[in-house]
Amino acid sequence: MSRLLVRGGLVTLAVLTGLVLIAPVLVIIPMSFSDSSFLEFPPTDWSFRWYENFFSDPSWRASTLSSLKIAVLVTITAVILGTAAAFGLVRGRLRAKAAVAGLVIAPLIVPYVIVGLAVYAAALQVGLTQTTLGFVLVHTALGVPFVTVNVAASLASFDQRLEQAAMSLGASPLTTFLRVTLPIIAPGVAAGALFAFITSWDEVVVSLFLSGPELTTLPVQMWSGVRVAIDPTVTAVSSLLLLFTITAFAALGVARLIRNRRLARSHR
């Protein structure tokens, strides 16, 4: 009896928690279709005007393109640097390996406000504020830990005898890497790449320091659209972003599911 009560309590709490977690995400979507300039819920009239505004306004378009460009470049550099680091940390023998490993996860530990302040001061010195290069340099540092951590996890469970097997069968070290190692650790690299992309794409705090009239990213423009004067276009952008990230992660989840299913089936 008391067990049932405990279960009931747990379920109630979980439902409430779930609501708190999901509700804000869900409430913003209907609001984005409101026709009103005042954000209201539920909307009285429906329209696509904030979506139209987002796609037609040159400043929104510019910041979106900047963010996209930066995030793509960040993903590429973070994947290359982060994957190499994972190989080094998992397979290498290195003096002060713990220090290097600590350095790699430092961007996860240092509060972004401090990172922002520090890189802003440095970027002012070398003239990299409001430049794509400046953003890419800093966002890469923020995204690299995710790549390294995910690839390192894949590598730790990778059986290195597969590489020996490939070489004994006549594959050069490069071919072995491309045909055997890389395909097998690919899920880790993909997860890392996705996180690196999202890190750059969503980043607000550090970007606030680096942005300006010359170059603004999408999250920074959203921030001013929320902070300065509430611009309902932000609801439309938010909904699009939600759609975008949820699709990306759902794709990753489905890919993992299919992979696991296939493995599970084959273990029968």
Partner: peptide, 20 residues
């Protein structure tokens, strides 16, 4: 000579088949 140029066949205890 590096292993991939030796042309020797090799069989491992845990098979080392390429899972992909």
């Amino acid at each position: 000579t590096p292993p991939h140029k030796r042309g020797l066949g090799m069989v491992f205890q845990h098979y080392a088949l390429f899972p992909h």
